[in-house]
């Protein structure tokens, strides 16, 4: 049985992990998100594409409650995460996030970065945390750098450590906020390679990205956003080969020579 079959079977059997409905967010009078709705099922790799300023990152930050939504709801296994009684830190520990600017803790070594969450948040023992940190650092090819401080690493290396740090919490779903946008072209490849491997292993991911090739080849589902709404959504095949909306066609035309 190949990966796709497993994923599609899971989809029919299980409920969605995340259910975003009618999500709204504005900064002052500027409305950034208007009525966003979609679902994420286990094993989904959802790519969110669209022009800068279309609200992609804001939407992702709302899912992790780094921004507080103004309207609509985000259900995590049926539970409204914006509810007052919601244990937000516990929720965030289950939903990992990888940032454009890495946000590695600059006062810690690579290894400590990957251990601190496990020890302080997940209350694991030091030995257990270290073993798991090494395992995930090994996975992203950064285990040789355990003693380095973030400032001593290249952008691509930092981002791979950031992915390992998120993975070490064993999240149910991992959010990527333009993970390669701050990287030199030659470093983009090493990060995408890691992400591709994770997708193939069946990790549930939402990826805000400008890497069209990744969105087309790796994701199971693509959302195209424009002006704070989901303009079009579907499988990569539908979006990249038979886009229906004029805005989608126009946006993708810019990437034509790259795909």
């Amino acid at each position: 049985m190949n990966q796709e079959q497993i994923v599609s079977e899971n989809k029919t059997q299980e409920n969605s992990i995340l259910e975003v409905s009618h999500l709204e967010k504005s900064f002052g009078t500027h409305s950034v998100l208007k009525d966003i709705s979609f679902r994420v099922h286990p094993g989904d790799v959802v790519s969110v594409i669209g022009a800068s300023g279309s609200g992609k990152s804001t939407m992702l930050r709302c899912i992790n409650l780094l921004e507080v939504p103004d309207g609509g709801s985000i259900l995590y296994h049926g539970e409204d995460i914006t509810a007052r009684k919601m244990d937000v830190p516990a929720y965030r520990a289950r939903v990992g996030m990888v940032f454009q600017s890495f946000n590695l803790f600059s006062n810690m070594t690579v290894l400590e970065n990957c251990m601190v969450g496990q020890i302080k948040v997940a209350k694991k023992s030091k030995e257990e945390a270290k073993e798991k940190a090494l395992r995930f650092l090994d996975k992203v090819g950064m285990s040789a750098y355990v003693n380095a401080k973030p400032r001593q690493l290249s952008g691509g290396q930092k981002q791979r450590v950031a992915i390992a740090r998120a993975l070490a919490m064993e999240p149910e779903i991992l959010l990527f906020d333009e993970p390669t946008s701050a990287l030199d072209p030659q470093m983009v490849g090493e990060v995408l390679e890691v992400m591709t491997a994770l997708a193939k292993e069946g990790l549930t991911m939402i990826v805000v990205t400008h890497e069209m090739a990744f969105a087309r080849d790796i994701s199971s589902h693509v959302l195209f956003m424009a002006d704070g709404v989901i303009c079009e959504e579907g499988t990569p095949k539908q979006i990249f080969e038979q886009p229906k909306e004029e805005a989608t066609k126009e946006f993708l035309a810019r990437f034509r020579n790259m795909l």
Binding site: F102, N103, F105, S106, V121
Partner: peptide, 26 residues
Amino acid sequence: DPGQMEGAKAIGMTHVQAMVNVILPQ
């Protein structure tokens, strides 16, 4: 850098944990 607090929150730290482990040492 505000990103440090966001990074800490994103792995589930409370404000106090983020302050003690990440922000105050820096």
